[in-house]
């Protein structure tokens, strides 16, 4: 077999001497590259978080911008959360009741246990996971499309920090509205669960509506989660949007990443806050 013939005239790039040449890569190089990209991404996220806090304290908002975002994040999520949290409440009480009945014949503490679980963990975490999909995707898609159409560059040309202009109003609105929505979603889940307990297990409302197990620790942990999740979702999603590259494909990738990373952030924060909460307020 004849050896391949070299081209008579080398291409321009080859003449330049600094052209890209395919380099052999191994597992170590790939792992190293992955690590570098991971560190770079984390630095980017940290930078967005820092700038968000800085501009939240120092920046000046245009009239109505935060309210507009509060409407987008809060009011427009009400239907979605009502449906999902209602069903989740029903399913959880139904499954818990079935399991509990195998061990103890008495279901009088079903409502009290469910309420404690909701306040301490489930209301905040489940509602925030839902918000991460609806709100997170929306934020990343909106900011990402502004990046790929150079609108973010145009903002920077006018002396505007895109984090101040695009992320901070969503952050402020989210911190407030996520708390409100979690309270609302928790109530929906609790009452839907109560209806299930009454219909399936014959647990009377006056028995179900029992807050005896609830203490200051549960409320503190629940509130901490409300604030943490409300802050994390717009920061992570904003960072994903600002990292969008290319065209519509880049926006799609940023949107997917926003949902994945926001959900991941909620889970990680849940673990951290629950761990700290367990130490501070043991059950």
């Amino acid at each position: 077999m004849a050896p391949p013939v070299a081209p008579a005239t080398p291409p321009d790039d080859a003449l330049d001497g600094d052209a890209e040449r395919p380099r052999p890569r191994g597992l170590a190089a790939d792992t190293g590259q992955l690590l570098i990209e991971g560190v770079r991404a984390f630095r980017g996220l940290f930078d967005v978080a820092l700038r968000t806090v800085y501009w939240s304290l120092k920046g000046r908002r245009e009239k109505g911008v935060v309210l507009e975002q509060a409407f987008e994040i809060g009011n427009k999520s009400v239907f979605f959360l009502t449906v999902t949290q209602g069903f989740i409440g029903m399913i959880l009480v139904f499954q818990s009741g079935l399991q509990a009945r195998r061990v103890v014949p008495d279901l009088t503490m079903l409502g009290a246990t469910f309420l404690e679980l909701l306040v301490r963990d489930l209301a905040a975490t489940l509602a925030s996971m839902m918000l991460a999909t609806r709100v997170g995707a929306g934020i990343a898609a909106e900011i990402g499309s502004m990046v790929v159409t150079e609108q973010v560059d145009a903002l920077r040309m006018c002396g505007v920090d895109p984090v101040d202009w695009l992320v901070v109003p969503r952050f402020l609105a989210s911190v407030v509205m996520t708390g409100v929505l979690i309270f609302y979603a928790g109530a929906i889940a609790y009452f839907a669960g109560g209806a299930t307990a009454w219909a399936v297990f014959d647990v009377q409302p006056q028995t179900y509506l029992n807050a005896r197990l609830l203490d200051i620790g549960d409320v503190s942990i629940g509130l901490a989660k409300c604030v943490a999740y409300g802050a994390a979702i717009p920061i992570v999603s904003g960072w994903c949007g600002l990292s969008a590259r290319g065209g519509s494909e880049g926006v799609g990738i940023a949107t997917t990443q926003a949902v994945v990373f926001s959900s991941l952030a909620v889970i990680i924060l849940n673990l951290v806050i629950s761990g700290v909460g367990f130490v501070l307020f043991p059950v």
Partner: peptide
């Protein structure tokens, strides 16, 4: 850089009008 950019006007290839 904001201070430097304040002295510069720019038209972007994609116009970059705020939607």
């Amino acid at each position: 850089l904001h201070r430097v950019r304040a002295r510069i006007g720019m038209l972007f290839q994609n116009n970059a009008l705020f939607d």
